[in-house]
Each structure stands twice: as structure tokens, then as C-alpha cells.
Design a protein around this nucleic acid. Sequence first.
RNA 1: UGCCCGGUAGCUCAGUGGCAGAGCAGGUGACUGUUAAUCACUUGGUCGUAGGUUCGACCCCUACCCGGGCAGCCA
Length: 465
Amino acid sequence: MARTLIKDALAASAPQDAIQLQGWVRTRRDAKAFSFIELNDGSSLKGIQVIANATLPDYAHIEKATTGAALEVHGKLVPSQGQGQKWEVIADTFKVVGEADATYPLQKKGHSLEFLREIAHLRPRSNLFGAVFRVRSRLAYAVHQFFQQKDFIYVHTPIITASDAEGAGDMFRVTTLPVGDPPRTEDGQVDNTKDFFAKKTFLTVSGQLEGEIFACALSNIYTFGPTFRAENSNTSRHAAEFWMIEPEVAFCDLQGNMALAEEFVKYLIRDAKEHCAADLEFFSKFVDKELLARLDFVLERPFQRCSYTEAVEILEKSGKKWEHPVSWGANLQAEHERYLTEEHFKCPVTVYNYPRAIKAFYMRVTDGCPPDRQTVGAMDLLVPGIGEIIGGSQREERLEMLREGMAMHHLSEKDYWWYLDLRRFGSVPHAGFGLGFERMLMFVTGVGNIRDVIPFARTPGTADF
RNA sequence: UGCCCGGUAGCUCAGUGGCAGAGCAGGUGACUGUUAAUCACUUGGUCGUAGGUUCGACCCCUACCCGGGCAGCCA
């Protein structure tokens, strides 16, 4: 007999004489004449109630069906006699496939997120993490749907890269040289020409530059893959390994970029609401009471847009006392971003046109900006509760301006010869951004720590499992 | 990396310079179409680690380890 997923059994439109279920026991309640077993197989938040009558031949084994045990049940799907569920299964036979003894750490009551992180191999069996990872899967699918429907080409940019100065942060070194005793040159330096790739290599911090190559050939592209930052960041919003989506669009300016970002974020939210309704309701009930209202609010109205210069004015006029002073030319700090999105605009805000000096070399210098206040076409999408979830820009497509930017950042043209070539041969205005997938998941689920929206978090000092 | 908070039973947490506590989980029994079931009884401890102060330290001091929050870096 074929297995029925519990989500399908729960959605049945008619009773069934014969059904097979496989899953894990969440809880069991014994009565004199029968046992109630709540079985969950991860296909939905809700489990199904299985009734094992004491008359079953193997009823003596029911005591092995403890919380956490794996169970296979054959029986009948019937309307429930009790309150709280539409359907239940009357078992004809049941088999304890895998026992779970009393040391099984997941209990019926709530656990702290910190404790569950320590048992990352078992936490997907909890309601919260089952829901988080179902939403994660669905949103990953929605990312591809969104871009594929728009005829974007999915590009696999390399995980290992030799570009070591993309400006996005510290990088993890990739090497096969012996750590304690590397080959050395005559002057005592490590001889990287003896390394696997005959040069220094790293894990990627961004697929953007490679993405630009493909956008300047296939027009609209996106990447979606793991990204690595070796920064010693200890916050609820940073991980050393995370997934990023980076679209890159040829013949596109900053305005088009901001519009795409907004459409994309709204698409993902709408998709989660449509396809993960039960899981989102669970988050709204147990994680963040405001969640559903906030998601609706975000969907209903256009995101605010505000130039960096306007943002500075808003912050200066706010009357707030800032821990970090506000002045034109300084980076916006978390407290500033939080004020803009949570207090001033009270909705997602895209801040654009940042001072050239504090942004990356490849960002396009704004047309007509005053020489003493040069800006570049950068944009950050800020959302309440999390802050930045998107960072992007229009790229500098003018060769001479790009060379100037590289010189300002002390970058060698030799290292970027191929990047400069894109401006020599058929250069076009183009723009793109990076969306932190985990940050998006935090926003959609209301979960407050990035460690709880990725299956196995890598953060400074921690790479368990 | 800096600042702050924490580490006591499997889990969540009280606790006082002088005999180590509760709720939940686990165990035993009762009861029940139950659903975070209920009721009674009950097992369970290197009080993060190492030093120090003290007649005596879970408690005070120092260092370290681990976890968390915030900040910086960013997505």
C-alpha cells in the first residue's frame, strides 16, 4: 500500500477504508480501551490523531510508541468523534519502526530556542522548526518562479574565487597547503604558486561581479547560492555562511532596480501567505503576534523611497539623541535605519544615492551630483525589525569613471582586467542587488535569530553538525 | 572584536555566607473520546571550570570556558 502524507489525509474529502501513514509520535494519551497517538510526518504543521484500540493484536507494544518514536500505521480514515480535528485514523495495525527511549530530548512543552540549537539534529521535529524549514523550502522555490517567469537566466557563479577585494567583507581562505609547514619562496613568504589553484583563493562573498558578466550577455540573470563571510560578527542577523539571491539586469538603472527589489520582496511574501498559511498562522500565534498584520501592511502599500541626503535631514530633524552622530558623509547606523523604517516611515524604506566615499568601487556615480557631495547609485532596502535585507546599486558602466573608483579604493586594474573589459566592449547601464535569503525568512516568519532560519548555522566559534 | 546579562535536576527557572528547591519531562498507580489531558506518589544534582577569601562558598573575589543581547562589519 502506498503511503499517504498526513497533510493529504487531513485534507481528505471523504473517509477511506484503507490508509497507510508513516511518521513520528508527537504525543500519546492512553485511555482504558484505546490510545490516542498524535502522528506527524513533517508534511504539515498539524499531525493526525491515530486511535489504537486495546483489542489490536499488537496493542501490548503501544508502550513503545513514545514521543519521538517512528511509527507505521495501517487503518481507516474516519470523521473524528472528538473535538479539535475533522479526521482521525482508526488503526488496524501499527508498527513501531524505530523506538525512542526516555532520553529523547523533545518534550511536549515548549523549549528555548537556545536549547533547540544545541540539538539541531532533532529540532526539525518540533513545530516551530518544521514550519520554518517548510517556509524556507517554499520560498526558495518562489525565488526561482519569480525570476523564471520574468525570463531571468539562472547563473551558477563560482563558490571558490580568486578575487580577494570585492569589498563585501573578510573572506575564508581556501587552500590545500599544509597549515603548519607551507612551501615558501626564497624570501620566506608562503609560496602560493604551489597551492592547488596556483594562487590564493577564497570562498565567495558575492557572485555579483560574475553576475555582471552574464547580465552583459544574457540581459537578465540571477544567482541563488551560498555565500561566505569570515567576519567576527556576533549578532542575530549575521552568519558566516548564508544564502543570497543576486539578480543583475542589463539596460537597467537605479529606479528600475528599486522597483524590481520591491516587486520581488512582495512576491515572496505573497507566495508564503498563499502556500504556507498554516505555518504563518503558527508564527503569528507563538513567535510574533503582529506578524500577519505586518505582512499584510507591507503588501498593501508601496515601499517608501528616500535619498540618503533626505534621510540625513529626517534624522537631524527628528530631535532624537543618537549614539552615533548623524552627518552627511557618515554611514547610517542601525539606530538610524531603525528609526527610519520603524518610527518615521513605519514601513519598508529604500534609501538610495549614498556618499561615494563610503560605498563600493563599482557603484555608479550619480549624474549631476555636486563635486563636494558626490553620491553613487547605491540602494538599501530596510524593513522593520531586521534592518537591511537588500543592498544593491546601479553599476558604473563608464570605463573612466570605474577606473577612477578603483583608484580611490586602491584596487589594481590588473586584478580586475576582465571586469574592466565589460566596460570596453559593449558596455551598458546595468544594476542589481543582493537579498539575504535568511533575513527574508526572518521577516516572513517573525523568527528573531538568523541561527533559527538556517538548518545548521555557522557563526563565529560554532560549526556543529 | 567591544560593552552588558546569564550558566543550579533531562527542560524552564527560584534560591540563601550555615542540611539543594519548584514546575514540567521520566517512573509507578488511578481516572478519562483524549488532544500542552487530569489526579496521587516518586526517581533524579561535580550548583560551567580552575583558583582565591572564609571556621564554612551555589552565594563574595579573580581568571577562563560556554550561551544570549546590543554595537561595529553587512545581506
